[in-house]
Computed example of a mutant assay.
Amino acid sequence: MEIGVPKETKDQEFRVGLSPSSARVLKENGHAIFVETQAGVGAGFTDDDYRSVGAEIVQTSEAAWNRDLVIKVKEPQAIEYKFLQKGQILFTYLHLAADRKLTEHLIDCGVCAIAYETVEQDGANKLPLLTPMSIVAGRLAVQFGARFLERQQGGRGVLLGGVPGVSPGKVVILGGGVVGTEAAKIAVGMGASVQILDVNIERLGYLETLFGSRVELLYSNSANIEATVAQADLLIGAVLLPGRRAPILVNRNLVKQMRSGSVIVDVAVDQGGCVETLHATSHTQPVYIEEGVVHYGVPNMPGAVPWTATQALNNSTLPYVLQLANQGLEALKNNPALAKGVNVQNHRLVHPAVAEVFPDLV
């Protein structure tokens, strides 16, 4: 099969769909790999790195896109819509619940669009291709939050770890899944005071075995959200409903109650976000201030650490890419987890969670 790897076009997205080591495995299995020139440079991979494993370097985006299977990291941008074609398999992050325009175009063009974030292992409730980037994003959320709490960045000048004689900063995390857990690890390591809110009692029990008394674990309801968010120096949105828009847990009135210069980092922004006042930003302009609070809403946070993120992503995606390359669409019949990743196929919106968001497109 011909496999294309275009250069990412989203703002400051330096990850790449296939690393040279992944390209080598695919080549060894008899497939032809076409990598757009400079596609891997941001992640530390040169064109020669790809040539050395048998990939062909092509000079244009169109040459990389015009293949049977296209492997990316982020959803196609508007300038890439013209490259999508009937019968093509696209394998990447899509987050369609927050992007009606892209959803409509994927339906119209006839591509088979498989989303990393909705590949789900049967019976395990696991999202194997979302997990590695959730780990990265969770850890980065505290790293970025700490930066923007600095006075020079518009924050209130709080050191999360505090110092002897001065209270540490307060970190509130909405959601105790992978993102929330990883964020808590970093926040605890920095010496912050940490609270996690979640609706899953079983998950809270697991987190207690992980953190003990170092983290305050609270059931997520309106009263607890209001009490904790108002006192937070750093609020992290870590809510995930696979394929669906994130619910709004923090309304504008609650944001108004936060202290001036506190920071919100919503990792759920690529699914619409769980904070009413937060909208998507970019690595070029990552923050804005609303109601006196610094808002960070970059939807491709792991793009800030592309060397780490690309390899972490490839470690998880390669087995699925290999199945698609070897078997084509038959892989969807042979692998139920991969089949659940299909969002659009044969001009139809087929993923049930996305269909709930856009019922008129079904």
Rank of each mutant, 00 (worst) to 15 (best):
M1I: 03
I3A: 00
P6W: 14
E13R: 12
V16L: 06
K27D: 01
E28L: 15
N29F: 14
A32C: 13
F34R: 14
A39I: 07
G42T: 11
D47S: 06
D49R: 03
S52C: 02
G54M: 06
V58A: 06
S61A: 15
A64G: 07
W65A: 06
N66Q: 09
D68P: 00
V70Y: 01
K72Y: 04
V73Y: 00
E75K: 09
I79G: 00
E80L: 12
E80K: 12
F83C: 05
L84F: 07
G87N: 08
L96M: 12
D99M: 06
H105D: 09
V111C: 06
A113Y: 05
A115D: 11
Y116H: 12
E117A: 13
G123N: 12
G123P: 06
N125S: 05
N125Y: 04
P128D: 05
P132R: 08
L140Y: 00
F144T: 14
G145D: 13
G145I: 14
A146N: 15
R151A: 15
R151F: 10
Q153P: 02
G155I: 10
G155L: 13
G157Q: 07
G157A: 06
G157W: 04
V158Q: 03
V158M: 11
V158R: 10
V166F: 05
G176P: 01
G177V: 13
G180V: 14
A183R: 07
K185H: 14
V188H: 11
M190Q: 11
G191N: 15
A192M: 12
V194N: 08
I196E: 09
L197W: 08
V199S: 09
N200L: 11
I201F: 08
E202T: 09
R203N: 13
E208Y: 15
T209N: 07
S220P: 04
S220V: 02
S222N: 13
A223M: 15
E226L: 09
E226F: 08
A227L: 10
A227C: 02
A230N: 01
D233H: 12
P242A: 12
G243C: 08
A246L: 14
A246H: 12
P247Y: 04
L249T: 13
R259L: 10
S260I: 07
A268Q: 04
D270H: 09
G273R: 13
E276M: 08
L278E: 02
S282A: 15
T284Y: 02
Q285T: 10
G292D: 07
V293H: 03
G297K: 10
G297F: 11
V298K: 09
T310S: 07
N315F: 03
S316R: 08
L318P: 00
L318C: 00
V321I: 15
L322M: 13
Q323F: 03
N326L: 04
N326C: 00
Q327T: 00
A331F: 06
N334V: 02
A337V: 03
V342S: 05
N343E: 15
L349P: 00
L349Y: 02
V350W: 10
P352D: 03
V354T: 12
E356T: 11
P359D: 00
D360C: 08
L361V: 04
L361C: 01
V362R: 15
